[in-house]
Nucleic acid binder design. Sequence first.
DNA 1: CTCTAAAATTGGCTTGACCAATTCGTGCGT
DNA 2: ACGCACGAATTGGTCAAGCCAATTTTAGAG
Lengths: 231, 231
Amino acid sequence: MSVNRTPERRLYQQVADQIRRLIQSGHFTLGARLPAERELAQQLGVSRPSLREALIALEIDGTVEIRMGSGIYVASNGEQKPSPPAATGESPVELMDARATLEAAILGLAAGRFTQEALDELRQSIEGMRAAIEEGRKPIEHDRQFHLLIAGQTGNGVMARVVAELFDERHSPISSQLRAHFDTTDNWRCALAEHEAILAALEMRDTPAAQMRMHRHLEESRRRWIESEPR
Amino acid sequence: MSVNRTPERRLYQQVADQIRRLIQSGHFTLGARLPAERELAQQLGVSRPSLREALIALEIDGTVEIRMGSGIYVASNGEQKPSPPAATGESPVELMDARATLEAAILGLAAGRFTQEALDELRQSIEGMRAAIEEGRKPIEHDRQFHLLIAGQTGNGVMARVVAELFDERHSPISSQLRAHFDTTDNWRCALAEHEAILAALEMRDTPAAQMRMHRHLEESRRRWIESEPR
DNA sequence: CTCTAAAATTGGCTTGACCAATTCGTGCGT
DNA sequence: ACGCACGAATTGGTCAAGCCAATTTTAGAG
């Protein structure tokens, strides 16, 4: 059962795939211990360092569990990570709805923590956005900064990361290319006005209003996105 | 700039983290080529096979791009996949706080959409969890199913994916390994009771109570996780 | 039958070597 | 002076062998 080597992929990837196939086919059962490194390398016809590289890939994706001195075990059900997240199959509607719900909740947490300095940073982001629009540029970075400044006020890196990831999905190079005509000056002006409304609510310490406005901003952004969809 | 070796983690993980830190600090800029393998191994004070193992981890998570004969390049913006939480310095506290806020918000959206069938599925998940606990097994899959059934009620794939990803970070193979003694039967019984309380609130159509209980469940889970941290 | 210690087995990491792909430098021709 | 081709150098890919450390297994003594 040697590895069928092909030049297109690195050997560790091919070995890792071979081991995954052996697990999926039942040759190695869940929870069972694999042959020792030296034995498995020999069976697969590769060197021990190459096998170790493959095992690292399998450890990272949760397929196996490696215990020094004991052996390599097929991870039990539930420890394997799901397939890498891909925005394929997920519509812009779902993405923007999720952002609306999640960012409104995050804003609710962050609202009580805004210092004057943080409000000033939001103001600067808005002014930068305004200047970019007037120069005919796309203020994507200012848009991103605005959302991340808010998420950052929670002091929670996980929330900030989730907001950043969802924002980047909204503005991934592929989705941006497919909707180049979406980024009109009028649409950015609308977004700017919505950011200003959010900041005004924060300055008034009106958390419910800020949340409602953030929710509305993202629903409006969704509408602008959908309406730009080619027909 | 040698790697500060610690016995708790594999050397390749420590080397990969060190390289990530060098990138984040600007020592290696985006798009730039890293020193050659032999040079970098020497700088970090490890062997070349150990460095290669680290590079595989970095290749898998999208941090670097490896080109045979040419070199190792820091992936440009947009190519980097989200980092595993341990690598980004995100604490379990932040992860669980984020889950508490986000899943309570998602539950608020989902609460009005629960059919009797969906409530029955939640009940089945709880019964399966109870049976697993009584058999001395870790009901991780039932735990995951419970949270994903709720997120799935929103009909929004993005929300479901975010919940799944955050759940899997909580239960990644690495974090599970480091806290093997966390998964006690008593702790799982507490989690089961909390799941039951959430379901009871949903059955009573009491959305605020369901949200409050979900929030409390995840804060309790965080407390159980933190208290299991070795001192 | 139990316990302890040694041996064996296992993974972790290193050194060193050779192969293959890419890049760079040099020399020659136009 | 520029372009092209070829060889050298540099780069990553893979391998063999060895030693260290943790865990498991086995054998012997009580």
